[in-house]
């Protein structure tokens, strides 16, 4: 998919662990892991809003459009 999830980059910048973020966003660790590894097909606005609030960032800091990246 040409949409890249840079969640791990933002988490590293904010020095936040996956477990900590999962608790703050109130989603399961498994679902957050799916999002982080780029396996997710879609993201709800509600989840995006909660992640942005927890990491104090913009949606564009987490999601990136990379044309030509079609293999997955």
């Amino acid at each position: 998919m040409p949409i890249i999830v840079n969640l791990d980059v933002m988490m590293a910048k904010r020095k936040m662990s996956l477990t900590e973020l999962a608790e703050k966003v109130d989603i399961t660790l498994a679902n957050l892991s799916i999002l982080k590894t780029g396996k997710a097909k879609a993201i709800r606005f509600g989840t995006l809003e909660a992640i942005c609030a927890a990491l104090d960032c913009q949606p564009g800091d987490i999601l990136e459009y990379l044309p030509g990246n079609e293999e997955s």
Partner: peptide, 8 residues
Amino acid sequence: QQEQDLTI
């Protein structure tokens, strides 16, 4: 269903 499962 698969899409629903992979919607976070």
